[in-house]
Simulated scan of single mutants.
Amino acid sequence: MKKLAVVFVLVFTIVSCKKEAKKDVKQKEVVEIKESKFPSELHKVFQFHGGISNWKSNHLLSFNINDETHTVALQSRKTVINAPKYSLGFDGNQFWLDEENDGDYKGNPKFYYNLYFYFYAMPFVLGDNGIVYEKAEDLVFENVKYPGFKISYKANIGNSSNDNYIVYYNPETYKMEWLAYTVTFNSKTSSNRYNWIKYKKWENVNGFLLPNEIIWYAQDKNGLPTKPVGNSVKFTLPLISKTKMANSFFEKPKG
Rank of each mutant, 00 (worst) to 15 (best):
V132W: 00
G158W: 10
G148F: 13
V144W: 07
V132K: 13
G148N: 06
P228K: 05
K188G: 01
G148K: 13
T184C: 11
Y146A: 06
R193A: 09
V233H: 09
E203T: 10
G207H: 07
N159R: 09
T226R: 09
E213C: 05
T189I: 09
V233S: 07
N159D: 15
E172Q: 05
N222V: 00
S190R: 06
N192V: 08
E142A: 07
Y169S: 04
V233D: 14
I215E: 13
G230D: 06
F208I: 01
Y174V: 01
N222T: 06
N186M: 15
N195W: 00
K201R: 10
Y168G: 08
P147Y: 02
F149H: 13
T184P: 11
W178C: 02
F185R: 00
T226M: 15
Y168E: 11
E203M: 13
E203N: 10
K150Q: 04
N162F: 06
P171I: 07
A218R: 10
N204Y: 06
Y174R: 07
K221V: 08
Y153L: 13
V205L: 05
G148E: 15
Y169A: 08
I151K: 14
K198A: 13
S152E: 00
E142K: 15
L210F: 03
K227H: 15
Y146I: 03
N164M: 10
G230H: 03
K201W: 11
K198P: 13
Y165Q: 02
Y165V: 01
E172W: 01
S161D: 06
D220H: 12
D220V: 13
V144S: 03
Y146N: 05
N186H: 09
W196S: 01
W202H: 02
G223A: 10
E134F: 12
N156M: 08
T226N: 03
L209T: 09
T226W: 09
N195S: 08
N206D: 07
N192K: 12
K200G: 09
T173F: 10
